[in-house]
Design a protein around this nucleic acid. Structure first.
Lengths: 265, 265
DNA sequence: CGTCCGTTTGAGCTTAATCAACGGACGTGG
DNA sequence: CCACGTCCGTTGATTAAGCTCAAACGGACG
């Protein structure tokens, strides 16, 4: 990478050279790892690469609660970064139900294939969410040009795959209690970025309907299950605030010990 | 890539230079895409890269039916390639049950993390299977050094992730009939690499127990479900031979039309 | 010839879905 | 300000799907 390298900018603006890019990197927040960094953001080591990413992305924009992310008609797929808030990757099934495949919070990235006939995937904001994106072609170029980005991206996708397998394994087995407890345990953990304590009052912008969509249960049964868990003193969900009264019991019920959960998020 | 580039060989043998590698590439079959090539194998364009992969992998070896793949104690994880036969990636749950996360056939690759406390993943051969592998550190080096390999690998992992999401969505919804029909529909499709016809007698080295492990049903209920499907004339499973008498009905029941299935495999 | 494993079938039970009604929170419009 | 509709959560009664336990059968293989 020499000083004359040219960095193409989003929206067709005049390309920047490296020094301009370095300058920009001082001013922009990192959209690739704005908050969490499971893998340390390799790009911090290279101002130009860092800046290239910032520039390649679209302008961040807010999505209203419950709204779908939908770019202007675009034959290309897109890679989204969640900067703030929560979003859900979901599949809309033929029978009208929707199934949540993944919750994403600040720092997570999601690939959305171009809309095709054979998959009804969508990304929906739970509560107001700030997101930005690049097109997949631009993303491919970034992968090819910035090895450190490629490496980080690769480990992200691999991680997502392992997480999807973990959910698949969980999904097949166990009672509604276990599913609900496991979901709340995971979301609370990811939300706090540490093990929940009984005193924590954790705000999560999800309803019981979302819990149903993520676990494959009906909302009615989620309600019953939650009252059961509340009566037993395990956890409580009131509005959008969750309290985990007995973390050890929740961990045991969910089948995912604290150390393991820490590994996932 | 110049003629003096040195290619490290597995097992610590003396490194090869490029011309030796090219020579080797004439003699070795490609372990990266031995059969299927969803994505055309980019490496065919570069003899040296092709050879580097062949050399980096371990010697292929046969795994007996039902046996786990277990490398000699190895702190590093490994990336396996299935050359022949079928294997299952599975998770062994605490209650003794096992859940199949993914079936892999010739040409598929699987990443296995080093054994840790917090995941009981294993890879088991269904019927005799020929596999080879490299360590994850070697794999990382290949990714860094051969962009075309990295690109192909990336699209594989992305594909696996999308497939895992599709299974997750399927898992949550529908009856045992649907789950079983969907699994058999998928496996038959992948086995034939085309849509099954009523006259096909498809050999798959899986038992009803495996179907149960992959769908989350008990073997008992799989048996009942299969007899139901047989009585209705949809499909038949006798020993390890499956016949799909009414592909259209099976596709409809499974919820995965033929075009979509073709996209997945 | 006996054993083991996979499969089949039956009976009873548990879980979660379905159908239905109701109350509270919230927003809208009169 | 209150009437209204909508969405979310709760609760009850009923139904259906799949699990568990149990027994028996058949083929493969020693």
């Amino acid at each position: 990478m020499d000083g004359t390298q040219v960095i193409e900018r989003a929206d067709g603006a005049a390309p920047w050279n490296r020094s301009q890019a370095e300058d920009a990197s001082q001013r922009h927040p990192c959209s690739i790892c704005p908050v969490r960094s499971r893998v340390p953001c390799g790009l911090a080591r290279d101002a130009a690469a860092f800046a290239a990413l910032e520039i390649a992305r679209s302008t961040p924009r807010w999505i209203a609660s419950g709204q779908q992310i939908r770019e202007p008609v675009d034959l290309d797929g897109r890679v989204y970064t969640v900067l703030q808030g929560w979003v859900a990757l979901q599949e809309d099934l033929v029978d009208g139900r929707t199934m949540i495949l993944r919750f994403a919070t600040a720092g997570d990235m999601l690939t959305i294939e171009p809309a095709t006939l054979h998959s009804a995937r969508s990304v929906v904001a739970l509560g107001p969410a700030l997101i930005c994106s690049f097109t997949q072609t631009r993303h491919r170029r970034l992968l090819a040009e910035w090895p450190e980005f490629a490496e980080q991206w690769h480990s992200r996708v691999e991680h997502d795959l392992q997480l999807a397998y973990a959910h698949l394994a969980e999904m097949a087995v166990g009672s509604a209690r276990r599913h609900v407890a496991a979901l709340i345990w995971e979301l609370a953990f990811r939300s706090l970025r540490r093990a929940p304590r009984p005193s924590d009052r954790i705000h999560m912008p999800i309803s019981q309907i979302h819990i149903g969509a993520a676990t494959g249960l009906t909302a009615v049964h989620v309600s019953r299950t939650l009252s059961g868990l509340r009566d037993e003193g395990l956890l409580e969900m009131r509005g959008h605030v969750i309290s985990i009264h007995d973390p050890a019991a929740v961990a045991r019920l969910s089948g995912v010990p604290e150390e393991v959960m820490a590994h996932w998020c």
